[in-house]
Structure formats: structure tokens, C-alpha cells
């Protein structure tokens, strides 16, 4: 995934939120990043530090909460953890899976002052 773009998008949402919620400094940003979302965490941290340099989120701490991949088999209807899109159902071997968790990229909340 494109970590610089993600970092820019995170900053933009922080600034949009600041405009309506009245805060002037962001201390911590919590993100939820799914294991299947293909985000390189170190790269995201690097770009986040770069794009927030002259912003309200300067030196904010980035807390990344990993969300494990989970899928439901459309053949046997069972739910199980997966680590990649190409995995098959461990119960019946089917490839027909529906991802139920782990592809999210969300901003959960901010600690601000």
C-alpha cells in the first residue's frame, strides 16, 4: 500500500477534526490496521513523521493496533484466522472465503489537548 498517501490522509482527517473539535495539539494517534491491509508499519511511521512536521500533529505518537485476519468459508460456514488472501479453508480446503476481519485501515481516536 501507499504509505505516504495514507500518512497524508491521516493528517488531513486530523486537521478536519481539529477544525470542528477545538484542540491545538495531537499527542497520540491510534490506528487500526488489518493484517491483510498490506501496510508497511515502519514506512507509515516514517512518512507520518515527515508529513506532520509542521502541523498540529507534530511529534505525535503513532499507536498502531493490529487487527488479525479472519475469514468465513462459504462452503462450510466456519470462521477462522487467516494471514493472507490466498489461504484456503483449514476445515474443508475451499478457496471460497469471505474476509470478515483484517482488511481495515482506520483512525480510531486521538489524544489531544
Amino acid at each position: 500500500m501507499h504509505e505516504l498517501s495514507l500518512a497524508e490522509n491521516i493528517l488531513q482527517q486530523i486537521e478536519d477534526t481539529a477544525a470542528t473539535q477545538t484542540f491545538h495539539r495531537v499527542k497520540t494517534v491510534w490506528l487500526e490496521i488489518g493484517q491483510l491491509a498490506c501496510v508497511e508499519q515502519e514506512s507509515l511511521r516514517f512518512f507520518f513523521a515527515v508529513v506532520t512536521e509542521d502541523s498540529i500533529a507534530r511529534q505525535a505518537k503513532l499507536e498502531i493496533i493490529g487487527i488479525a485476519g479472519q475469514a468465513m468459508c462459504q462452503e462450510c460456514n466456519r470462521t477462522f484466522p487467516i494471514a493472507a488472501y490466498y489461504e484456503a479453508c483449514p476445515h474443508c480446503g475451499s478457496d471460497a472465503l469471505q474476509i470478515t476481519n483484517g482488511d481495515e485501515m482506520r483512525i480510531r481516536e486521538l489524544e489531544v489537548e
Binding site: F23, M105, I107, E111
Partner: peptide
């Protein structure tokens, strides 16, 4: 210091 919920897709 306070928490602000966003809960939006990046």
C-alpha cells in the same frame, strides 16, 4: 488532554 473518537477509514 482528552480523547477524540474518529473511527473513520483512513
Amino acid at each position: 488532554t482528552r480523547m477524540v473518537k474518529i473511527e473513520r477509514d483512513i
